[in-house]
């Protein structure tokens, strides 16, 4: 790919980066406790949570496992679990 003049670059191409492989802990949502309030989505630094029809969906392609969602969830519906394949 030819370089753009002046280093100008296209919007939103970070989406190709899989930051999910930085993760040691995976947020797991208890959908029975979750009421889809969206607090976790607001606080997710990695835009890795979607609230879709009141359902909280974690995008594991991007989630870095910081745990803010679990800490801030008002209904304690998210728990951080050790990522499969990670030695603790």
């Amino acid at each position: 790919m030819k370089l753009n003049l002046g280093g100008v670059t296209e919007a939103g191409r970070s989406k190709q980066n899989r930051t999910g492989n930085w993760r040691y802990f995976l947020p797991v949502v208890d959908q029975k406790r979750c009421n889809g309030c969206g607090t976790c989505e607001l606080f997710c630094p990695d835009s890795a949570i979607e609230i879709n029809n009141k359902l909280c969906l974690i995008n594991t392609f991007y989630c870095k496992g910081c745990g803010i969602c679990a800490r801030e969830c008002p209904r304690s519906a998210i728990t951080m679990q050790v990522e499969r394949g990670v030695a603790v």
Binding site: A11, G12, R13, S14, K15, Q16, N17, R18, T19, W22, R23, G36, G38, E41, L42, F43, C44, P45, D46, S47, A48, E50, I51, N52, N53, K54, N59, F61, Y62, K64, G65, C66, G67, I68
Partner: peptide, 29 residues
């Protein structure tokens, strides 16, 4: 229907440290 999906103007896949306060702030802004 995806009526409650919110638009992100800071796309995922950026290189902020996990739990970065700046990334949260900029998404909200």
């Amino acid at each position: 229907m995806q009526t409650d999906l919110k638009k992100n103007y800071l796309a995922p896949g950026h290189n902020a440290c996990p739990g970065c306060g700046v990334a949260i702030g900029v998404r909200l802004i």
